[in-house]
């Protein structure tokens, strides 16, 4: 048990250490003291309450996309389509947020969130059913659906849903009553963060304390066994895809109603993909996901604001993030120059 905790922490720390080394080398090359830069990043991420709030605000969408990813990864379904579901969900919530009458007041919250969840669920139901029924490779289908989601939302937002008199591709703002309340004004940290935490907690609960979560974990480990003990593998696959879509859609809604208050170009700068890295870094564990989301949130927010106080370009953040992503999926314990003979018989 203790060894598994040790190996888990190594799994989480390794990518960080490697990325710090890589970015440290880059900094040294350009004649910067890496420690100065890293400590500046640390103060800009967690230096005071406002900075912490900014970090958490940047982490908020990642909580959703990471959980949406983890739900599937844990069940052995390699869904990379969370980005797309986040976009369509966000657009759906925002659309209702400005078209429904403002007089509906607080009723807008459940309506918008429900719509986003529904659209997200439908969006990922498609690759889910294709995988479960026809064995259509989910990696490719969801990857393609991401591009399609970007195209469709992009089309809508500069066509039918374009806000009149805008200088950019944006929809109108949603009614002010539909803004999610801010938690620590003036920070943009909004109630979506709490919803995100609830989603993480619900995910943790789902994994451990629901039969469906139990089944998801089992099909992720061994589909034949799951079938033999009476679990319907196709149904579980479709189930986790729908769940993933629901969470991603809710995430899009929270981002739209809490942060952006509209849909625009650049609504998601790749939250779905970063969320994937977060889920992998956190080893699909709820606490790991929260920590991972905060880490990437910190990188995003501090990586931007350190530019105010030093001339470190944003590219440094990309270097760190890219390295973390690659090494988050490296399995250090299994590095081998030649696969063991024993595996030769497998398959």
């Amino acid at each position: 048990m203790s060894s598994s905790i040790a190996s888990r922490s190594i799994g989480i720390l390794l990518p960080l250490v490697v990325s710090l080394i890589v970015s440290g080398v880059v900094l040294l090359v350009i004649g910067k003291n890496p420690l100065d830069v890293f400590s500046l990043i640390a103060t800009e991420s967690f230096g005071n309450a406002r900075r912490i709030a900014a970090t958490l605000s940047a982490a908020t969408p990642l909580l959703f996309t990471a959980v949406a990813t983890a739900v599937c990864f844990r069940s052995g379904v390699f869904n990379v389509g969370v980005e797309g579901a986040f976009l369509v969900g966000g657009l759906a919530a925002v659309f209702l947020g400005f078209t429904l009458p403002a007089a509906w007041g607080f009723a807008l919250f459940p309506i918008c969130f429900f719509a986003a969840a529904l659209i997200g669920a439908i969006w990922l139901y498609v690759p889910g059913i294709l995988l479960a029924k026809f064995e259509v490779d989910e990696v490719v289908s969801t990857l393609m659906l991401n591009f399609i989601a970007v195209a469709i939302t992009g089309y809508l937002v500069n066509g039918p849903l374009l806000s009149p008199l805008s200088g950019n591709n944006v929809t109108p703002l949603i009614h002010e009553v539909a803004y999610l309340p801010r938690l620590m004004p003036p920070s943009t940290l909004h109630a979506g963060f709490l919803i995100g935490l609830v989603c993480v907690a619900a995910y943790g609960f789902w994994c451990r304390y629901t039969p469906a979560g139990f089944e998801g974990g089992l099909i992720g480990l061994n589909q034949r066994f799951s079938r033999a003990v009476g679990i319907s593998v196709p149904r579980t696959i479709v189930g986790v895809m729908i769940l993933s879509g629901v969470i991603a859609g809710i995430g899009g809604a929270a981002h739209g109603m809490g942060q952006m208050h509209r849909f625009s170009d650049g609504f998601s700068p790749g939250y779905g993909f970063t969320g994937m890295a977060v889920a992998l870094l956190g080893r699909n564990h709820p606490i790991g996901i929260v920590l991972g989301a905060i880490l990437f949130g910190a990188l995003a927010s501090a990586g931007t604001t350190i530019q105010l106080f030093s001339n470190i370009p944003l590219d440094l953040v990309n270097i760190i993030q890219g390295t973390v992503m690659i090494f988050a999926v490296v399995e250090l314990g299994r590095i081998s120059l030649r696969r063991k003979k024993g595996t030769a018989n497998a398959g």
Partner: peptide
């Protein structure tokens, strides 16, 4: 200083 962000739409206010 000039400030760039990959997430400039959402993070603008912060």
């Amino acid at each position: 200083r000039t400030i760039e962000s990959a997430d400039v739409a959402a993070q603008g206010e912060e």
